[in-house]
Design a protein around this nucleic acid. Structure first.
Lengths: 211, 211
DNA sequence: CAGAAACTTGAGGGGACCCTCAAGTTGCTC
DNA sequence: GAGCAACTTGAGGGTCCCCTCAAGTTTCTG
């Protein structure tokens, strides 16, 4: 991450690192609700030390997830680089959920609400802004259905997070099949009029707020 | 439910009833992981009495959910009664998720794995068999895509359960919009070849087993 | 209506996890 | 290498929920 705010004692810096590594592992395997004591245990550090470095779970998550989310930026960039806007959009979805499938912590994070002030919240808002470009481009190309809005990605992410959570263990490719069905429904030529309007700003905000 | 295995003392029968009512409420509001003590509290009965009548959480769930699932049979029947197989299929999906949206307990139940020997497990297997008919009819009509199999409903139920869980509070209609996108992808004329095969029997069984 | 059987009660032990803090240890500075 | 600040430690108190069981209460039966 950063060079760490000045003057962290050598042992402290070492411990902080061990904690971060351990947290990446444990959150990755067990999701963001994993016991903090497990993280401390695997870092071979006492629980007190964990709390010393990261007073709250959110602090720990914030220290880890933005790094993970940077993979997302790579994916976004690739999507935008694709000359075919629709293909780019589809690759974006595939890449996004692939990330989620590889990391339970990230999967939890994206399916969950986050405090506005957290680093993760900020990263998500950034990601959302980039997604807007991808979606807009695909829609304007006429291949993505005209009534699809960026915010419709939110329920899709909830949905996929659950499919991934439930199926990764026994059928690690299953989520791709489900996604394929959904994607086929997002093509312009598959579109039928939908009676329900997109989420309003108010709803979106409420849904994003604390769990 | 049933007249209850002979000779239940009057007060015991009363308490059992209060517990069942309370459980319907509490599971409905908080999902199947709700604290049992809350159920006892609302039934105005001690926790010991709850355990006396229902030694395990599963016993309580089994005593309640099949009744709820019978609504599903009504929906299935309606779906089959529809002269248009595709419309019937779509109504079936709408009805199913509507049920889930109204009852958090049911939502949990359908998104979750169940012991084979539980009443709920049996009810689910029955429901699955009926769904097979609906899906088969719709597929043969040529409106439902040919590569959709009944077991593809499983990931869809996981997906929708999560969308419902996350959005019901702030945007009670949001799930319908998401479903509409998916449904548009299930039409035969929206279908593109999908590389990933359906779940195998083995995978399906593993996924259904204990949580 | 008395005695026996059926049922209820709630305090309490247990486990998982959270978080704190006083006492001990380590590293840095001069 | 002495002394002080920085850091670590882990036992322990708190919460929430699980489940049990000995003692008390209610219903049923003759």
């Amino acid at each position: 991450m950063q060079p760490q705010a000045r003057h962290l004692r050598a042992d402290a810096a070492r411990n902080r690192d061990k904690l971060l590594n351990s947290a990446v592992q444990v959150f990755g395997e067990r999701g963001l609700d994993a016991p903090l004591e497990e993280i401390a245990r695997r870092a071979k550090v006492s629980i007190g030390t964990l709390y010393n470095h990261f007073p709250t779970r959110q602090d720990l998550v914030d220290a880890i997830l933005p790094e993970r989310l940077s993979d997302l930026e790579r994916i976004t960039a690739e999507a935008l680089a694709d000359p075919d806007p629709w293909e780019g959009f589809v690759r974006f979805l595939g890449g996004l959920f692939e990330l989620q499938a590889r990391d339970h912590g990230l999967n939890d994070a994206l399916a969950r609400r986050f405090p506005d002030d957290s680093a993760v919240g900020a990263a998500c808002r950034r990601g959302f802004a980039q997604a807007e470009v991808i979606v807009g481009r695909a829609r304007e190309s006429g291949r993505l259905r005209a009534d699809f809005e960026t915010r419709d990605l939110v329920p899709l992410m909830w949905a996929m997070s659950q499919v991934i959570r439930e199926s990764m263990e026994a059928a690690p490719e299953a989520w791709r099949r489900h996604l394929a069905f959904v994607v086929d429904g997002l093509r312009a030529d598959a579109a039928r009029t939908i009676a329900v309007p997109p989420l309003t700003d108010d709803q979106l905000e409420k849904l994003m707020r604390g769990r």
